Amino acid sequence: MDITIKDIAKAAGVSKSTVSRVISNTGKCSDEARRKVMEAAEKLNYKKNALARAMITKETKNLGLIIYQKHKPILSHPFYAPIIEAIVDSSMKRGYSIIIATDQDIKASSAELLLEKRVDGIIFASFIDHNIILKYKNMGIPLVLLNNSVDLKDVSFVKVDNYSGAYKAVVHLISKNHKDIGFLCGPLQHRSYMERYQGYLAALKDHGIPVQEKFMRFGDSTLYEGTRLMNSILNSGDIPTAIFASNDMMAIGAIKAIKKAGLKIPDDVAIVGFDDIEHDVLIEPALSTVFVDKNKMGEMAVDLLLNEIVRNPYFKKENILPTKLILREST
C-alpha cells in the first residue's frame, strides 16, 4: 500500500501541510518539525518511493557530490580540492549548482541531505560503501563514480589507470638498480589502492624480483600514516633502498621519517609517490610521482552525470584516464 502524506503526518505528529513543505522543500518549517517528518518518512519507507520519484522527475539544476568522510577537510584536501574545483566550474558552465556532503552525512537517518535539498544526480568520489551506491542506483537516481569503480552493472565511472601507473613507478625504481623496493599502501578495500598494489607486484614479478613482505606496510592514506609506517620499516633494522607509496601524502610522510632518521634521499632511500599533488614540488627533495589529471577527472565526471540524467544511450560509461611518470629529485 502506498504511503500518503496523511500517514507521515500522523506518525510524525505534525500537520499534513508541514509534511508537504518538508517533502517539497518549499516554505518554512522548524528544524524539529523537519527532523520528525524525515524520521517518519524513513520508518515508513516513503523516501524510497515518492520522494525519490520527485527527485528524478523535477529538474532542480542541483548536482550532488558525496565524498569519503576521511578526506575531510574536503575543500582543502590536496588531491580532491582541484577535482572539486573542476566539478564546480564545469557544472556552473552548464547551469548547475553543486551540493557537497560526505558519506557519513547521508547515512544519518534524520538528515538525508541530498534528498532534502533535491538533486538531479550524484557524483560519488573515492571509497563509498557499496550499499550506499546500490541504494541510490535502485532508487533510479542518476549517479557516477569518481576515482573508484564497483562490480555493479551499468554504473558509470571515471578513474585513472592505477595498475599501469604503479607498474611504471616500480619499473623506474628497478631501472635505477633497486631490488629491495618497499611499498606503503592505503586501504585495500579501496579499489584504486588494490590496483596500485597489483601493479607493484606485477612489476617485481615481471623483472624477476622476489616480493618481500617485510618491506610492505598498509594503513590509512594520510601523511601521518606515511610517517608511522615508514618508521616501522626503519625501526625493523632491515631497510629497503627504495619505496613506492600508493599516494603522495604517504610518500611525503615517509620522506619526513627518512630524513629524521638521518638518511639521504635518494642516495640511501629513493621514493616515488602517486597523484602529483601541489605539495610535491614544495618539499625537499621534490617528489617523483605518477601524474593524475585531476581537472580532466572532475570535468569528465560532470559530463558523465549529465549524460546519465538525460539517459543518453550512446556515451561511454567506463572511463580510465592514462597516467604519466613525473621524475624529480627523490629518485
Rank of each mutant, 00 (worst) to 15 (best):
S30L: 10
S30W: 07
S30H: 08
S30I: 10
S30R: 09
D31G: 09
D31M: 11
E32Q: 13
E32W: 11
E32I: 12
A33D: 10
A33G: 00
A33N: 14
A33Q: 09
A33W: 12
R34T: 14
R34W: 07
R34G: 00
R34C: 02
R34F: 11
R34I: 13
R35P: 03
R35S: 05
R35V: 04
K36I: 10
K36D: 12
K36E: 11
K36T: 09
K36A: 12
V37C: 13
V37T: 04
V37F: 03
M38G: 04
M38C: 10
M38V: 14
E39R: 10
E39N: 07
E39Y: 08
E39Q: 00
A40G: 06
A41Y: 01
A41K: 01
A41P: 01
A41M: 11
A41T: 05
A41V: 03
E42K: 03
E42C: 07
E42M: 05
E42R: 07
K43Y: 10
K43A: 12
K43T: 06
L44E: 11
L44D: 03
L44K: 03
L44N: 07
N45L: 08
N45T: 03
N45M: 07
Y46V: 06
K47Q: 15
K47N: 15
K47R: 13
K47F: 15
K47M: 15
K48L: 05
N49L: 06
N49Y: 13
A50W: 05
L51E: 00
L51G: 04
A52Q: 00
A52N: 05
R53C: 15
A54C: 04
A54F: 06
A54E: 11
A54W: 01
M55N: 02
M55P: 06
M55W: 03
I56C: 10
I56S: 14
I56R: 05
I56G: 09
I56N: 03
T57M: 04
T57D: 11
T57V: 09
K58I: 10
K58L: 12
K58P: 03
E59R: 05
E59M: 08
E59C: 02
